[in-house]
Simulated assay, not measured.
Amino acid sequence: MRIVVYPPDDSGGRRVRADGEILGMAYTAQDVAEFLRRAGLEAGSYDLEDPTLIEWRGGGPDEWGLPG
């Protein structure tokens, strides 16, 4: 599974996709983790900073809020 987290939009949320399918809009790293759980990944079985699993665009898991 390949996850892409896009840069913040005008509302400050970041779109999350898994293998091309939109999972939802995340406003925190915890939201991303919940989307991964719903997609079938067990909590603790991955690292949100693992570039082989998640491609963070426009900042990593510590970058939230409206674009600069």
Score class of each variant (00 low, 15 high):
Ala18Ser: 15
Asp47Tyr: 13
Ile54Leu: 03
Thr52His: 14
Gly65Ile: 04
Ile3Gly: 00
Val5Cys: 04
Ala43Arg: 13
Val16Phe: 01
Arg17Ala: 12
Leu41Asn: 09
Pro8Met: 05
Val32Lys: 12
Gly13Arg: 12
Ser11Leu: 11
Leu23Trp: 01
Pro7Val: 06
Asp62Glu: 08
Asp62Ser: 04
Ser45Thr: 15
Val4Leu: 01
Gly68Val: 15
Phe35Ser: 02
Gly40Thr: 12
Phe35Asn: 02
Glu42Asn: 14
Tyr6Pro: 00
Val4His: 00
Ala43Tyr: 10
Leu53Val: 06
Asp10Met: 12
Gly40Pro: 08
Asp10Ile: 14
Gln30His: 11
Leu66Glu: 04
Asp19Gln: 12
Arg15Phe: 06
Gly68Met: 11
Ala18Val: 13
Val16Ala: 03
Ala39Leu: 05
Gly24Trp: 01
Ser45Leu: 10
Trp56Ser: 09
Gly20His: 08
Gly20Cys: 07
Arg57Met: 08
Ala29Val: 06
Met25Leu: 15
Glu55Ser: 05
Gly58Lys: 08
Phe35Val: 04
Glu49Ile: 04
Tyr6Val: 03
Asp50Thr: 07
Glu55Leu: 07
Pro61His: 07
Leu53Asn: 03
Ile3Trp: 00
Gly60Cys: 10
Gly20Asp: 13
Leu66Gly: 07
Val16Asn: 01
Gly44Gln: 12
Arg17Glu: 15
Leu41Cys: 13
Leu23Val: 04
Val16Met: 05
Ile22Glu: 09
Tyr27Arg: 14
Ser11Tyr: 11
Gly65Leu: 04
Gly58Ser: 13
Gly65Thr: 06
Ser45Trp: 08
Val16Pro: 00
Glu63Arg: 14
Tyr46Lys: 10
Glu63Gly: 03
Gly58Cys: 08
Val32Ser: 12
Gly60Ser: 08
Arg15Pro: 01
Asp50Lys: 07
Ser11Val: 07
Ser45Gln: 13
Ala43Asn: 10
Asp47Gln: 14
Glu21Ile: 15
Asp62Ile: 03
Val16Tyr: 02
Ala29Ile: 03
Glu21His: 14
Gly40Cys: 11
Gly44Thr: 07
Pro51Glu: 06
Val5Ile: 09
Glu49His: 13
Ser11Cys: 07
Leu53Pro: 01
Tyr6Glu: 15
Arg14Asp: 05
Gly24Ser: 10
Glu49Leu: 10
Arg38Ser: 07
Met25Arg: 14
Glu42Ser: 15
Glu55Pro: 00
Gly13Ile: 02
Ala43Glu: 15
Gly13Cys: 08
Gly44Arg: 10
Met25Ala: 13
Phe35Arg: 05
Arg14Gln: 09
Arg38Pro: 00
Ile3Ser: 00
Ala26Lys: 04
Pro61Gln: 05
Gly60His: 09
Glu42Leu: 15
Ile54Gln: 01
Gly68Asp: 14
Glu34Leu: 10
Met25Gln: 15
Tyr27Val: 08
Asp31Lys: 06
Val16Leu: 08
Tyr46Ala: 09
Leu53Ser: 04
Met25Cys: 12
Asp50Asn: 11
Gly12Met: 13
Asp62Arg: 07
Asp31Ala: 11
Asp9Leu: 09
Gly68Pro: 15
Ala26Val: 02
Gly59Pro: 06
Asp19Cys: 05
Ser11His: 11
Gly60Lys: 06
Ile22Lys: 02
Arg57Asp: 11
Met25Tyr: 14
Glu55Ala: 08
Leu66Trp: 10
Leu53Gly: 04
Pro67Ile: 11
Leu66Asp: 03
